Amino acid sequence: MKEKIDYLNRELQGMPLVDALAFVIKNFEGKKVFSTSFGIEDQALTHFLAPYAEFITTFTLDTGRQFTETYEVFQRTQNKYPALNVQTFFPDAEDVNTYVSKHGVNGFYNSIENRKECCRIRKVVPLQRAIKGAELWITGLRAEQSENRSDMQFLEWDEANQLVKYNPLLHYSLKETEALIDTYNIPLNSLYKKGYLSIGCAPCTRALAEGEPFRAGRWWWEDGKKECGLHIHTDKNY
């Protein structure tokens, strides 16, 4: 697999987005999935992946704590791209009830451990169901989103999930991503124009102040590197 990934990454250098998507989809014969949280990057990819709806399973993780605006853009996206047939994966109700009983409905504010456990229950566990059996996972990750993501490749072996992860917008800047949205009239979460550049669960997301980095509005009460556990970039050994 390492040789295949290295080869494909070399071929993808400088390739236009439309061609790159077609190239990668052609080179993976197994189950292919695309995860969307309806953020700006995922919305841009939705537009370009819509023609491949019959070859890709599109899914979203509904944590139960989403913004109303996220559901609104979900509906608008379904209306514009009905062929994608977005599948929704929810957390296990018993896991949520156990967490709330132990830590409280907003117990994630009390410690990093509590917050990560909430993310695990509401995101990571449902993700495992969503990507089960997949060979390729397409994401909207961009290198400039955070320090954690700055050394990614277009295609990477995800050791934890035992599949290949593909990041088509890896080298896109935020302005370039916004240009795709404007050019193709792609539905966008209305919170984005209000300073919510990275949108997660409502209790864990705030608008950015001027000059703050892209993900500063996520889990803003915590210090250091902040991820929910969906995307881990520590294993580069394939």
Rank of each mutant, 00 (worst) to 15 (best):
200 G>R: 15
233 H>K: 00
231 H>M: 05
159 E>T: 03
28 F>D: 01
163 L>V: 04
154 F>R: 05
134 A>N: 04
233 H>N: 14
102 K>F: 07
103 H>R: 14
6 D>G: 03
169 L>W: 05
220 W>Y: 14
2 K>N: 11
83 A>P: 02
159 E>F: 02
163 L>N: 04
186 I>H: 06
144 E>K: 00
206 R>Q: 10
178 E>Q: 15
212 E>W: 12
20 A>I: 08
171 H>D: 10
32 K>F: 07
12 L>G: 01
219 W>S: 09
29 E>L: 04
58 T>E: 02
67 F>S: 08
229 G>A: 09
223 D>T: 12
129 R>M: 09
138 I>D: 07
129 R>D: 13
195 G>F: 10
58 T>H: 08
168 P>W: 11
46 T>F: 00
63 T>P: 02
147 E>K: 13
56 I>M: 05
178 E>V: 14
140 G>C: 06
130 A>W: 00
219 W>M: 13
237 N>C: 04
102 K>N: 13
181 I>H: 03
58 T>M: 02
66 Q>I: 00
193 K>D: 04
233 H>Q: 05
70 T>C: 10
191 L>C: 14
72 E>S: 04
106 N>F: 15
95 D>S: 13
55 F>H: 08
164 V>Q: 01
63 T>K: 11
114 N>L: 04
41 E>H: 08
123 K>Q: 13
232 I>Q: 13
238 Y>M: 05
45 L>Y: 01
66 Q>Y: 12
199 I>A: 02
42 D>S: 15
1 M>D: 14
133 G>W: 09
158 D>T: 06
13 Q>L: 11
20 A>G: 07
157 W>Y: 13
157 W>C: 01
228 C>M: 09
213 P>M: 09
117 E>R: 12
162 Q>H: 14
75 Q>N: 04
64 G>K: 15
71 Y>F: 15
21 L>N: 02
125 V>Q: 05
89 F>W: 07
210 E>I: 15
140 G>T: 01
64 G>H: 11
234 T>Q: 12
189 N>F: 10
84 L>F: 08
22 A>H: 10
112 I>A: 11
106 N>D: 08
193 K>E: 06
154 F>Q: 02
66 Q>V: 01
17 L>E: 00
46 T>G: 01
28 F>I: 03
208 L>A: 11
78 Q>E: 12
81 Y>G: 10
160 A>K: 12
151 D>C: 08
17 L>M: 06
125 V>H: 08
224 G>L: 15
96 V>F: 09
229 G>F: 10
131 I>K: 00
29 E>G: 00
225 K>R: 12
34 F>S: 03
48 F>N: 03
187 P>S: 09
142 R>Y: 11
173 S>G: 09
118 C>A: 13
235 D>P: 03
218 R>D: 00
70 T>P: 15
38 F>A: 03
3 E>R: 15
191 L>R: 05
221 W>M: 14
125 V>D: 08
14 G>T: 12
229 G>I: 11
98 T>W: 01
145 Q>F: 11
204 C>S: 11
12 L>E: 05
49 L>D: 03
59 F>N: 01
171 H>I: 01
44 A>D: 07
27 N>M: 06
212 E>L: 07
73 V>I: 10
152 M>A: 08
232 I>Y: 05
